[in-house]
Design a protein around this nucleic acid. Structure first.
Length: 476
RNA sequence: AGCGGGAUGGAGCAAUGGCAGCUCGUCUGGCUCAUAACCAGAAGGUUGUAGGUUCGAAUCCUACUCCCGCAACCA
């Protein structure tokens, strides 16, 4: 059955640091999907949500270090994300940008927590964790260096603290069933397998959903001495981002989520705590959790220590908005880890965009100058990419446009020599050019979701037979 | 230790039982409409190692080597 609406989300990004290439990758992919479905279903039937996650101990600490209030700090970083998504940067066309510090979000979260408490899904228990006395905070294994707090050089103590807990064990069987039956589809397959084996092999323990000594968070409505643990706060954005007020009997029309797009680092929580909350509330689960891989650089995780990071600003500067969008999406199969290096991206940029697409447009426009041609393309652009995009094969979709249209057109020009025909056989010349122009109209339409600006520029050039600027100047 | 992913011509990838293909790079030739771009042809691989199954293996099985990641409240 055909979906009549399409609701897609990115994770909301934690504002402990400025946006990086990974955030950009997820968001570009979501944007391409959203733009594609807007073409298919109409703008009003698509909702694309992104935003920022702004509470928690880590933020509180970072703000302190920066000598700012938490609110100032999160305002600043959140706006960095917004700027990066703007038209002059990555050109992300979201329908809403939610912030977990929005008043409406906070109210809705509190309402949900109260409901969960009333339903008996939340109880008072104890959270056990590694506590650093110097930081007055619980630490995660990942925060530690050689088992010691990096700030204080001391090993944290195993400590217990009063905390409210969300019942996980009792929903485990139901969750597993929903995942196995793909009522709650975790995809690609390998990630589903991961989660299924995880859920089969151990009993989920109840999770702590509050913190006692973190002030930068949403206070529990039934115990103001606790703030809400960030994950619980964050997950609910997928609902509050639609304007939901926290009443489970009054869900937004766009619900459920069609695609929760996430990176593999946050798969486990998204496939356990998030659905657990919804099951407790009696709300339908998202249809699909799509997990994509990470961006590696030279086969390794990007890290400052290794010095192999590639900044998104650097990419934008070098490749422009559409170049960056193209390169990230075509770097490898969506879902797998993709490996990028600046060197290879420059190569691909030159090969596909400058020498391929850009040069093709130049030569066709020059040849067509002074003549009139229409768009006589016979293919339906909405069908052309459909199968691929529905399968999330954005890289394959791009590859096929390159192969079937761009390379073929270049060959067609060489084979038919329109510059000669122009002098010797005008009828044939017009026929050849008409075919080229029509194919390029198709190219411009197919690129709409991927490279909206470029698509526009191509269309304009085809209509006016003039190219105002060189598309994708070759990088030396 | 365990779990997951991977190893294919110089580089990056494709091919899940049937002649090992694509892009980039290299070499040679062609073209001159175009962004020193475009087109054609060529060279280059005993598919990580060792065994096994099969008429047939990159693909299935076993063992091993190496690389990467994960190892629940890290957003």
């Amino acid at each position: 059955m055909e979906n009549k609406k399409f609701y897609i989300t990115t994770p909301i990004y934690y504002v402990n640091a400025k946006p990086h290439i990974g955030h950009a990758y997820t968001t570009i992919a979501a944007d391409v999907l959203a733009r594609f479905y807007r073409q298919q279903l109409g703008k009003e039937n698509v909702f694309f949500l992104t935003g920022t996650d702004e509470h928690g101990a880590k933020i509180q600490k970072k703000a302190e270090e920066a000598g700012k209030s938490p609110q100032e700090f999160v305002d600043e970083i959140s706006s960095e994300f917004k700027k990066l998504w703007a038209k002059d940067k990555l050109n992300i066309e979201y329908d809403n940008f939610i912030r977990t510090t929005d008043g409406t979000h906070i109210k809705a979260v509190q309402r949900v927590l109260q409901t969960l408490k009333d339903k008996g899904a939340i109880y008072k228990g104890e959270y056990e964790g590694l506590y650093c006395v110097g930081c007055e905070q619980f630490k995660n294994e990942d925060d530690l260096v050689n088992g010691k707090c990096p700030d204080h050089g001391t090993a944290p103590d195993l400590m217990k603290e009063e905390s409210y807990m969300l019942k996980m064990t009792e929903i485990q069987a139901e969750l597993l069933e929903k995942i196995e039956k793909e009522e709650f589809k975790v995809t690609p397959e390998k990630y589903k397998n991961k989660i299924v084996s995880f859920l089969k092999n151990q009993t989920l323990h109840d999770v702590s959903i509050s913190r006692k000594n973190v002030s930068w968070g949403i206070p529990l409505p039934f115990d103001e001495s606790h703030t809400t643990y960030v994950w619980v706060d964050a997950f609910l954005n997928y609902l509050t981002g639609l304007g939901w007020d926290g009443d489970e009997n009054n869900l937004p029309e766009m619900w459920p989520v069609d695609i929760n797009l996430i990176g593999k680092d946050i798969l486990r929580v998204h496939a356990t705590i998030w659905p657990a909350i919804l099951i407790h509330l009696g709300i339908k689960l998202p249809k699909i959790i799509f997990t994509h891989g990470h961006i590696l650089s030279d086969g390794k995780k990007m890290s400052k220590t290794l010095g192999n990071t590639i900044s998104i600003d650097e990419m934008l500067e070098k490749f422009g908005t559409d170049g960056t969008r193209y390169l990230l999406l075509s770097a490898g199969p969506f879902g797998e880890d993709i490996d990028v290096t600046m060197e290879r991206m420059v190569e691909k940029y030159n090969a596909d965009l400058a020498n391929g697409l850009g040069n093709l447009i130049s030569r066709v426009i020059k040849l067509a100058e002074g003549y009139e041609f229409e768009n006589k393309n016979e293919y339906d652009p909405l069908i052309w990419n459909k199968g691929f995009i529905e399968a999330f094969w954005m890289d394959k979709a791009l590859e096929r446009i390159s192969d079937h249209l761009i390379r073929k057109s270049n060959k067609y020009i060489t084979d038919n020599k329109p510059w000669e025909l122009k002098k010797t056989d005008e009828a044939k010349f017009k026929e050849v050019m008409q075919k080229l122009i029509s194919d390029l109209y198709l190219v411009s339409e197919l690129f709409i979701p991927f490279m909206p600006e470029t698509s526009e520029k191509i269309k304009k050039a085809l209509e006016t037979k003039k190219l105002d600027e060189v598309l994708f100047q070759r990088i030396k």
